[in-house]
Simulated assay, not measured.
Amino acid sequence: MTLEQFTNDEEQVARRYEYDDQLVFVVDFGAAIADSAVDVVDGTVLAVLDGTQYEIELPEDADDAHTFIKNGVLTIEVEGDR
């Protein structure tokens, strides 16, 4: 998974955090996002923000992924071997 696709806009901040048993990806789309939804389907995170869809492939060795979006901040927590 790469975060470069989200950093083209100077106002978006994307970060990757590595822990012993988990990776966490965070993308700040801004608090102005009025309508958003996020789900994981067949190893792909699908995020729809104000009508624009983003697809993010999870690592092949990801055992489990949890996603949520709040106040325009998308968080993806990936568990498993890296």
Rank of each mutant, 00 (worst) to 15 (best):
M1T: 10
T2L: 09
T2E: 13
L3A: 14
E4C: 06
E4A: 15
Q5S: 13
F6L: 08
F6C: 09
F6A: 09
N8L: 11
N8E: 07
N8R: 04
D9R: 12
E11S: 12
Q12M: 12
Q12N: 14
Q12H: 14
V13N: 05
V13Y: 05
A14V: 13
A14L: 07
R16I: 14
R16E: 15
E18D: 11
E18R: 10
Y19E: 13
Y19D: 08
D20V: 12
D21G: 12
D21A: 13
D21N: 13
L23C: 05
V24E: 11
F25V: 13
F25L: 14
V26Y: 01
V26N: 01
V26D: 00
V27D: 01
V27R: 05
V27H: 00
V27P: 01
V27Y: 00
D28Q: 06
D28M: 09
D28L: 08
F29P: 02
G30K: 02
G30T: 05
A31W: 02
I33F: 01
I33H: 00
I33L: 02
A34N: 10
D35V: 10
S36G: 04
V38R: 00
V38N: 01
D39H: 00
V45M: 04
L46M: 09
L46W: 04
A47N: 02
A47R: 03
A47I: 00
A47Y: 04
V48R: 15
V48E: 15
D50K: 09
G51D: 06
G51H: 06
T52N: 10
E55S: 14
E55G: 11
E55M: 13
I56G: 02
I56R: 01
L58K: 05
P59F: 09
E60D: 15
D61I: 02
D63S: 14
D63C: 06
D64P: 00
A65K: 03
A65V: 07
T67R: 04
F68Y: 15
I69V: 14
K70C: 05
K70G: 07
K70W: 06
G72R: 02
G72Q: 00
L74K: 03
L74R: 02
T75G: 00
T75Y: 04
I76C: 04
I76G: 03
I76F: 04
E77I: 03
V78T: 03
E79H: 12
G80P: 07
R82E: 12
R82H: 12
